[in-house]
Design a protein around this nucleic acid. Structure first.
Lengths: 136, 136
DNA sequence: GACAAATGATACCAAGATGGTATCATTATA
DNA sequence: TATAATGATACCATCTTGGTATCATTTGTC
């Protein structure tokens, strides 16, 4: 049960890396080298983040991507939901009928509670919190 | 990121159902009817639990399965690990090189902490805790 | 002993998700 | 006008999930 898929993982790397030099334009070629992510795959990921209001793109020869959202407001949860869809860990549990003596509600409730707490935790991990404070 | 896959889900149903009548032999045909699980799939699941010391099998015409482990000591975590392998939510994160200014350790540590707490919670959900106490 | 009905062991399989690649069009700078 | 960036899409191989199918073996009952 992977919490982060590959694209989310890569996205976190890319965003933190860009956020470290906030305001500057970074192109995929540059990031590919820094982050060791396959270039075409990273391109796709960057485009998705652009569609989702995390990045802004500049086209043309000296183009690239720039952070448009506030890095202190982008959480790991945000990126997970962009790349993996709505966060839910207890899909399709006990939808069908079950042995009558089993308290399905207990399990459902406990799992829901776990889910909520994980979600909350993931939301506190912001991009800023992942960047070194010390200069150099 | 599903916490429980289908087999784990089914296994929980089956075990709780069997545990509700502890000591008795239940065959797959009976459980299939009660639990609404495809028969051959349930058979496979039961066999896996037998291999893992949860159930004991009785062969022959009046055979079936019987609970061999203490239902108060079988947790949802146990079943997850049987069907889904070792519980780890942060596989392959940041294995390769990353932008030097990014604190990869922070993310790793936070995810590890989340994982540990989820694991702990899942371990407290035992089969007994899912069975109705009231007779009938 | 033969039959029926259970499990044991395995092999197979379709659909969807994952982790990418490839291609062509468009934009903008030099 | 050539070059180098992104935009948009289509494609693709592999793995995982959620099963099915088959044949062998065991055991109770007639």
């Amino acid at each position: 049960m992977k919490l982060l898929t590959r694209d989310t993982d890569y996205a976190i790397r890319a965003v933190t890396c860009i956020a470290a030099n906030h305001g500057e334009i970074h192109n995929v070629g540059e990031l590919t080298g820094k982050l060791d992510i396959p270039r075409p795959f990273l391109r796709k990921i960057m485009q998705i983040m652009q569609h989702n209001g995390i990045l802004e793109s500049i086209r043309g020869k000296t183009g690239g991507f720039r952070l448009v959202a506030d890095p202190s407001k982008i959480s790991v949860l945000n990126l997970i939901e962009i790349f993996q869809g709505p966060f839910q860990m207890d899909q399709h549990i006990f939808k069908k009928k079950v042995c009558p003596r089993v308290k399905i509600c207990v399990l459902k409730k406990k799992l829901d509670k776990i889910e909520a707490s994980v979600k909350k935790e993931l939301n506190t991990i912001t991009m800023t919190s992942l960047i070194e404070n010390k200069k150099k």
